[in-house]
Amino acid sequence: MTDIVHFHRLSYRYGDSPDVLTDVSFRLGQGEMAFITGHSGAGKSTLLRLVALLSRPTRGQVVVNGINLSTLPRRRVPEFRQQIGIVFQSFNLLNDRTVHDNVALPLVIRGYRHQDIGRRVRAALDSVGLLGKEKMLPLMLSGGEQQRVGIARAIVTKPALLIADEPTGNLDPQMARDVMQVFERFHQAGVSVLVATHAIDLIRRMPHRILHLDHGRISQDSPSGFQDTAG
């Protein structure tokens, strides 16, 4: 099986500060779903930023979807980002545009036709259970609903890889569970999913691999969350 994400002996530091990630190596298989956990400041967000090419590795290699990010020229970055779906903790929705227009944005960027956009946006909203809310503005929705709009926007282009940085960080436990289930469903539909989260209790009950980061190193790589990760 080819890997969708491959970190090879990767190190990263911001400017002159010490390494935030040190010698990180792991593979995420095609269609696999995994969680990244770790204490605050462990480097979870940094790791995801490297996958989305928001930062470039200081040392080592990151290969995503067969593309070596260390050598990808700047002008090809947008094209690369179009291949992955990104979900943010702070939603990052455009609050002056309707739910429909927010979800449509990635399609507009790719130059889809008007009719196709409508069809795909409705399908994406349907898959996160927000079909009736197309015309609403993001701020009229609850946090969980806004996060699901963000997920719909990330998957509307049917990316092969979905990454999410603390997608449940701002949500109450019930909403958090709902959102995690949405990710679960995409995973079952064949999408590779990588989620950074603090919600240990939530993910332990899910049958997925957990990568544990400790001060920038992978301290534990358990194949299933059913295992005890405290050890």
């Binding site: 947008p78 980002r81 179009q82 990052n92 455009l94 944005l105 990635p106």
Partner: peptide
């Protein structure tokens, strides 16, 4: 700027 940032995050090329 927020909007521009979001656009770049979801892969909008500079020309767009």
């Amino acid at each position: 700027r927020e909007e521009i940032m979001v656009m770049k995050l979801i892969g909008a090329p500079n020309s767009f």
